[in-house]
């Protein structure tokens, strides 16, 4: 079982940590260098985690476990207006990122109001490309109740954030109260406690999603696939996005259009088979990125037959 951790420290000798992660069979999920500081998100085997802790201590860096690493989360606001952005949506996004997830922020075109709110099929499709959706709605419980159709029809797990302390509606598993409409940065102790509660709920949602997948496991871990692509596909290192390959719970997303990508992975092989045999490769109709969804073991076996 892998343990995910976030290392923050100086750039000097950070490569020693990267080498150690590689030596013990771990993975480097994300690497961000800002001037003389470095932030690494790593996945290492649980039994060797102490080695990493000791190395981080030696390098005078900070190492924290991040439960959300390896997942992509979309935070959805009712609109992109000043009423909902930048607070609290950007603060929520930042806090989730600090816990290892890759986040996307989106505002619905017509998500506001009680009677007039609506969500389009395109918006739903965009949200469903991530692993978890976090809906940040307002203060009034009556309004939340009238907006359930925005999130109850989404195929991925949804975490709802709203003003009322309690909110129960059939079909909604995860709810965190106390985060409604806000107009200031959420950085007080009380806010951070709420954020911790939110991360706990999101972690539960990610964990449940992973458990669902484990019932019919994937034939390849997304982290392995990421490594194979990084080592064999030319041009990935030249993608200017800070995270060229985004890890999902059931696959990866490469920030390259499919027509370029398919050409490049044509001859990449793993364990005697071509990459195309391990996963369904398609282009996102919205972002034009390439999405690789790894086959489950049962599906893979049926294909072989």
């Amino acid at each position: 079982m892998f343990k995910m951790a976030l290392f923050e420290g100086g750039l000097h000798r950070a490569d020693e940590l990267e080498d150690l992660v590689d030596d013990i069979g771990g993975f480097l999920i994300q690497k961000n260098v800002t001037q003389i500081d470095i932030t690494l998100i790593i996945a290492v085997p649980g039994e060797d985690y102490d080695l990493i802790v000791n190395k981080a201590k030696e390098l005078r860096g900070k190492l924290v476990e991040v439960p959300l690493a390896g997942s992509e989360i979309t935070i959805v606001a009712p609109s992109l207006g000043k009423h909902h952005l930048p607070h609290p949506v950007c603060d929520i996004s930042e806090y989730i990122r600090r816990n290892g997830a890759v986040t996307n922020v989106m505002g619905l075109a017509r998500g506001v109001g009680q009677r007039i709110n609506q969500i389009t099929a395109i918006e739903k499709g965009m949200i469903e490309e991530a692993d978890i959706a976090v809906f940040s709605l307002g203060n009034f419980s009556r309004c939340l109740r009238k907006k359930t159709h925005l999130f109850l029809d989404i195929d991925i797990p949804v975490v709802l954030l709203g003003g009322p302390e309690q909110f129960n509606v059939e079909g909604l598993e995860y709810y965190v109260g106390g985060i409604g409409r806000r107009s200031q940065r959420l950085r007080q102790k009380y806010d951070l406690d709420l954020f911790n509660k939110m991360v706990d709920e999101i972690s539960k949602a990610v964990e449940n999603r992973r458990r669902e997948i484990e019932e019919d496991p994937l034939i390849l871990e997304p982290m392995y696939l990421k490594k194979i692509l990084e080592e064999n596909v030319e041009g990935i290192d030249k993608i200017i996005s800070p995270i060229p390959i985004v890890l999902n719970v059931d696959g990866v997303k490469v920030k390259m259009p499919l027509n370029q990508f398919k050409e490049k992975i044509k001859n990449v092989e793993f364990d005697g088979r071509k990459i195309e045999e391990y996963c369904n490769i398609y282009q996102s109709p919205y972002s034009k990125f390439t999405i690789l969804k790894i086959y489950t073991k049962s599906y893979f076996d049926s294909l072989k037959k």
């Binding site: 203060n139 419980s141 003003g163 409604g180 409409r181 806000r182 107009s183 200031q184």
Partner: peptide
């Protein structure tokens, strides 16, 4: 509870 939330919100907006 909702009224309390709105007091905070109004205060923050006036400060902004």
């Amino acid at each position: 509870k909702e009224a309390q939330g709105y007091v905070v919100l109004i205060n923050d907006i006036m400060r902004e």
